[in-house]
Simulated assay, not measured.
Amino acid sequence: MPSRTPHTPPPYRSSWFRRAATAVAVLATAIGTAGAAPGAIAAPAPAAPTAAHPAAVAAAPDIPVANVKAHLAQLQSLATANSGNRAHGRPGYKASLDYVKAKLDAAGFTTSVQQFTAGGATGYNLVADWPGGNAGQILMTGAHLDSVTSGPGINDNGSGSSAVLETALAVAREGLKPAKHLRFAWWGAEELGLIGSRNYVNALPTAERSKITGYLNFDMVGSPNPGYFVYDDNPALEAVFKDWFAAKGVATEIETEGDGRSDHASFKNAGIAVGGLFTGAGRTKTSAQAQKWGGTAGQAFDRCYHSSCDTTSNINDTALDRNSDAIAHAVWTLSAN
């Protein structure tokens, strides 16, 4: 629209305009404060969120540890019914995947099963997307679902798989509407060398990889003689977990035992930011760590690591509870803006 030189009213009209404007302002004030106490001033409308001042992050719900343990009991039953394990290429693994998928489907997730071949056997990844959020910014959370052939793999890694599952189900229960798109994953053939997660990442086009703002990995989060270890691969993701535990009065250490040995490595090697939690495997807890966290010094964090005794009796409830809540906190926080 072309500009136009403002018209200046003559003096007699100017005074009339001023009186009219004043009357309108008084009327608007009266309407805006109707029902308010005498002399009250209407509060200004809250400012819209901006990049510099993002919207407040809603607190994550408590994740009931009883629900997580119920998933572990199901995984134990499936292993017991299928030669005592849930390993890649064995019926116990596929039964585990079907159990997780059914829970997610019923909760409203869009799920997909991806096949691959390893060691002459068919393997499976399960990927679940929560509807909504910015498809150009994806927060992924995952855990490997397979066990070794020697046992049911309840801590390694039924614990991480079940905690991630219950967090996903909490997203559905709460009707979470995150700013970022949420994607959850359960990997196959991790125990054979991160094969499932590597297959997934390698199959992603470059443009799709670039949409993943972060991947959070949870491999063993209920060790019976637990430590509280945080991945330090990315400072921002590390801080979310460290600050949460610090607020609970729980000291943490940097995770070193499993560095590069779990599925986060598949993402890190592709240039994707990674973070996660770990409660320890076959290494021995030191005296200093026992003083810090309790438990038994001179004993492995998990004496049943990769053994037949990695059953539902091989779980520390406190560690499982804390880590499950920390996972939910990270998902809610990192997906909010």
Rank of each mutant, 00 (worst) to 15 (best):
R261K: 15
V68D: 02
T286N: 09
G227T: 09
H71N: 14
A326S: 05
L237P: 06
Q289V: 14
V65P: 06
K69A: 08
G196Q: 01
A236E: 08
A239V: 06
A189P: 03
A107Y: 01
G260M: 09
E166N: 14
T8K: 09
A42T: 08
I212R: 09
A36W: 00
P54A: 06
A300P: 02
G136P: 12
G39C: 06
F245C: 11
A297P: 11
A179F: 11
N323L: 09
A40W: 11
A179K: 15
F229T: 08
W130S: 05
Q137N: 06
L277C: 04
N269E: 10
V24N: 07
Q76N: 14
G119F: 10
V148D: 02
Q74P: 09
D156L: 03
G132S: 08
S77K: 09
G153V: 04
F109V: 01
E257V: 14
S3V: 02
G260N: 08
F17R: 05
G142K: 10
P131M: 13
H53F: 12
T318N: 11
Y93K: 03
L72E: 02
F301E: 09
F278G: 13
A265W: 02
P91K: 07
T111D: 09
G294K: 02
F229W: 13
L78N: 03
A118N: 15
P9C: 05
L204Q: 08
N85K: 09
A40F: 01
W16L: 02
F245T: 11
S15N: 13
A179H: 14
R303A: 01
Y93I: 08
A189S: 12
S223I: 07
N316D: 14
M140L: 09
D146M: 08
W332Q: 02
L334D: 11
G142A: 03
A143C: 06
D129C: 13
S3M: 06
A60R: 10
A48L: 15
W187S: 10
V164Y: 00
